[in-house]
Amino acid sequence: MGYLLWIFGFIGAHRFYYGRQITGVIWFFTLGLLFVGWIIDLLLIPGMARDADHRYDSGETDYDLAWILLTFLGVFGIHRFYMGKIFTGLLYLLTLGLFGIGVLYDFLTLNGQIDDLNRRRH
């Protein structure tokens, strides 16, 4: 999944996926540090994946599917419907992801949201 999101890494998608929000925001606003950092990240993905595997609990809500839905359909709130957040899913659908701000918020917090859902269900 990290490699798929790396394709969009110049906006920081893979960094957000691996729980690296600060550098994700930096990549988002600098186009992956003018694409240089984006290329270097291709070599760093295995290490980021190992760190993320230790940090987040797997469970009923799948991280990969939620990230695919956020990355490609986030403005429509499909990832929120998937997580069972119907009200905010409808809100995103009607406001195009709260005018993009909600989508950026979810890039920053999606791993934590899924981790909370999975912990509550265990």
Score class of each variant (00 low, 15 high):
residue 15 R to S: 01
residue 13 A to F: 05
residue 104 L to F: 10
residue 102 G to S: 07
residue 109 T to D: 08
residue 86 I to S: 11
residue 13 A to R: 01
residue 101 I to G: 09
residue 98 L to A: 11
residue 43 L to G: 14
residue 107 F to P: 00
residue 14 H to M: 01
residue 21 Q to V: 11
residue 72 F to N: 10
residue 17 Y to T: 08
residue 84 G to M: 06
residue 35 F to Y: 15
residue 13 A to E: 01
residue 105 Y to L: 07
residue 58 S to F: 08
residue 54 H to N: 15
residue 6 W to F: 04
residue 59 G to K: 00
residue 49 A to E: 10
residue 23 T to C: 08
residue 104 L to M: 13
residue 86 I to M: 11
residue 84 G to L: 06
residue 45 I to P: 03
residue 78 I to C: 03
residue 6 W to A: 01
residue 70 L to Q: 01
residue 82 Y to E: 06
residue 16 F to R: 00
residue 35 F to M: 14
residue 104 L to G: 02
residue 69 L to D: 06
residue 93 L to W: 11
residue 70 L to H: 02
residue 59 G to P: 00
residue 115 D to S: 12
residue 64 D to K: 14
residue 59 G to V: 00
residue 73 L to P: 00
residue 33 L to F: 15
residue 98 L to V: 10
residue 10 F to C: 11
residue 68 I to V: 14
residue 94 L to D: 10
residue 102 G to L: 03
residue 46 P to N: 08
residue 6 W to Q: 02
residue 90 L to Q: 10
residue 68 I to M: 14
residue 36 V to E: 13
residue 103 V to W: 05
residue 11 I to K: 14
residue 122 H to M: 13
residue 30 T to K: 13
residue 2 G to Y: 05
residue 70 L to K: 01
residue 92 Y to N: 02
residue 36 V to G: 13
residue 88 T to M: 10
residue 107 F to S: 01
